[in-house]
Each structure stands twice: as C-alpha cells, then as structure tokens.
Design a protein around this nucleic acid. Structure first.
Lengths: 226, 226
DNA sequence: AACGAAATGATAGTAATACTATTATATTTG
DNA sequence: CAAATATAATAGTATTACTATCATTTCGTT
C-alpha cells in the first residue's frame, strides 16, 4: 500500500495517553521503539526503564506520555485496530458485488500483515505480531469494564461491527453476524499463534492458508443457512 | 454428572508442580482456594502470600508445591482441559451415529460448565471462568516453546485432536479439521468473554446460544465442502 | 538576543511483587 | 520413640511500576 491516502491520522482513544505521542519526535520514538522492544522481549519483561535506555531518553519523560505500560499496550493495539479498519474500508469500498466485498474483507482480516509506508514510525508487521501475542492482555484484566466505558476497545469493536455489517448485507437472515465476525477476527490471530507454536494442531501450510479456511467457513455458514 | 466414574484422577503434566497437590490436604486446599482467589481478584493481583493468608498457611509452604504462580496457572488450566477431555469421551462414547457424536462434542465444548461432584476440591464452574479469563496468559509468554516441550499444553492439544478426529470421521475430505477444532474451542471461550464484557458485539441471548451458533458453523462447513 | 514557558532529564524514593534461603516446629511413619 | 518428612516463621533480595521533586534544555515570541 503506497501513499494513496497520506496524512490520515489513525484515531486512538484519547484516554489511553496523557500527551499525544504523535505530537512530538520523542512521542514517535516511544511508539517506534516500544513496538520493537515488546516484540523482542514480550510485554511482561518490557518496562519504561528499558524503553528509556533504548531511545536514550528518561523513564520519567515516557511517563509524561503514558501513565502506565498497560495504557501504552492499549494505545498500540487500538492503533492497530484503527489501522485495520482503514484497510478494510479502502480495500472494499470500490467493489460493487457484496460477495466480492465480503471475500475481500475476510482476506484483509486474516492475511499476513504487510508494511504500510504511510506511517514511518510504526512497523505494522511487528505491531501485528504484538497484537497476536499480547492483544488479549489488554482486555483480560479486572479493569475491562472500566476501560471499556472509557472507550478503549472501540477501535476493535468497530472492526467487528463493520465486518458484521458486510455479513448481514450478504445474508440478512443470518442470526449471528456479530458473533461470526468476532470469531473470525479473534481466531485469525489465534491461528497465527498456533501455527508458530503448536504446530501439531495446525493445518496451515503453503497451500492451505488461514484466508482460505476462513473464507470457506464464512461462505458456507452464510450460503446454506441452518 | 454423578459419580459414574469415581476416583478417576485427572492427569496433569508433572513438570507443572514440585509436589503433587492431590497428595495432601494442604495441596488440595491450595487448589481449592487458588481457584476462588484467582476468580475473585484476577491472576495479576493474585499471589502466594494472599493465598497463604486465605488458607491459614504459609507462603513458603505453597512454594513447596508450585515453583511459581505461572506454573500453578498452567496446572489449573491443564486440569481443566484434562477434565474436559473426560467429559468429551464419556459423553460421546456410547453414541453410535457419527453425526450425534459430533453434535454432542460441540455441545460439551461450547456449553456453560456445570459442577461435577466427583472432584470435591475443585469448583469446575469457577475454574471455567478462570479458563475464560486467564487461559491465554498460560501460553502467551516468551517461554511458550520451552513450556510446550515440557508437555504443559498436551491436555489442551489432546482435546483439540480428539475433536478434530470426530470432524474427520464425519467428513474425511475436509482440509482443516485441526484448525476448525481449535477455532471452535478457543472461540467458545472468547465468545463467553464477549457476551459478558463487550455486549454490543454479541448476538447471544436465551434463544441464541453459543452451542447453536457453533453447531451450525461446523455442520455447514463440513456438509457443503467448498 | 532575551525571556518565559514548556518539554525533557536526572535523581531519589516507595510499596509491592515474586521469589530464595534458613531455621524452627509440627506431624507422620517405621 | 526417633527419624524423617511436612509445614511454618522469619528474613532477605532484586526488580517492578510507579511518584515526586528539582534541574536543565529547547522553543516560541518579542
């Protein structure tokens, strides 16, 4: 994807940051290198002291942008879902047949992420790996309901809703458009993890891709009712 | 389920514990109350000091059974998968038609958990809630591959494999039996979470259950090929 | 170039965590 | 009843995830 739509800023829930990291070079460095570090060492081992060292800045300066490492994780995952919603919209918009739209949507949601040069300070491929490995930690907490009220998970829920609307448009009689949408989106992440770490329970290889699997699953579910 | 098969011990990977908690009253108290506490406060806030206080025992004594709270979590989730495998086997065994077996398996894997009085020191309903909220934390770590080599995730993988075998028996031509199996098992947990915390992206209510949703999904995927 | 404000950096400190190590006291077993 | 084993008590440690305070640098405006 090249700069068809440059300068589009991905919107992230404002409660996740104290100072907008997109508004300064230090902020952008925090984003760039937190992605690299979390990918390298995992979210548990990652902390603001290590991040400070990596960007030759100070722990205390990072706390001016994010009040906790949890909120930084929520920021990063929200950014990812916002970005993915964008991909979904622009790649399906011009298609005229609803079947093509649906198939394209499944492709966007289940394919391996490619880098998008529009956002130079964010490595989308690494961010996708972080989302695979750490996304669920952003909501599997005792504070989910509070965080949810603050709108932290809106970007994720918007992706689910958009996809479910395509499902309903393709098959208005289907009873579970939202559940099917969130199953595909969530399971696509899980299946990537399984493929890398629990190989004995995966069927994916060069010929058999998640996109193919989920496309069959969705189309069969919608084509033949119950 | 009553004591049809009493005294069947659920096997848990031996590397998860230092001393078998089933072998003593203190060990059983650790299991009973760790489940209650983790459910109450979440895995992050839970620690062995609090558990010690809850069972009027000492932190140091708990460390004689489990070398870390992570391994205790792996123990508990493994126990759950081992128990679920049991339910799967005994509830499908006597059925003769493969379609009935498959449908029953989906029911066992996607229904709301009921208490099983065979294991008095384990509350399966609470344990199921823990699995919904904390299961992914047992493998989304930098040590997954080591833990996997130690066999920590065998109970989970065995459930996936058994279910995938039923899928293949029902439809030998299907290309993704393992992926479909792990999608259903994993997504069933996720959908329960979504239903409780992200209501706006759920379609479940009294009339529309996860079991119904997943049954349609699987049968359509298998009945109508691609 | 000068001034004030804002941003960043440096340093110190804190309560809690996830343990380890050691020694003491119960409890069980032969 | 002694020895072995299990459990308890206590202390200690490095690290974490921050907060607080003050110093310095950078920036925009005149």
């Amino acid at each position: 994807m090249n700069n068809l739509l440059s300068n589009i800023k991905i919107e992230v829930p404002s409660g996740t940051y104290l100072k907008d990291p997109e508004s300064s070079t230090l902020g952008k460095k925090i984003l760039t290198h937190s992605i690299i570090l979390i990918d390298e060492m995992g979210f548990e081992s990652f902390n603001f002291k290590k991040l400070g060292a990596a960007i030759q800045s100070n722990e205390s300066s990072i706390y001016r942008y994010f009040e906790s490492k949890h909120k930084l994780l929520v920021y990063l995952t929200s950014w990812y879902w916002g970005w993915l919603e964008y991909q979904l919209v622009i790649e399906t918009y011009s298609l005229t047949s609803i079947e093509d739209k649906l198939k394209k949507a499944i492709e966007v949601l289940t394919r391996t992420t490619k880098n998008d040069n529009t956002y130079t300070h964010i490595n989308e491929v690494l961010l996708n790996i972080i989302v695979i490995n750490e996304n669920s930690k952003s909501y599997l907490t005792k504070d989910v309901d509070d965080d949810n009220k603050e709108g932290f998970f809106m970007p994720y829920k918007r992706v689910v809703k958009r996809f479910s609307e395509l499902i309903s448009e393709y098959q208005p009689d289907y009873d579970y458009p939202l559940s099917l949408a969130s199953t595909v989106i969530q399971s696509a992440l899980h299946q990537q993890f399984v493929k890398d770490h629990f190989k004995t329970i995966s069927n994916f290889d060069k010929q058999h891709t998640p996109t193919q699997f989920f496309t069959d699953l969705v189309l069969n579910a919608l084509t033949y009712g119950k």
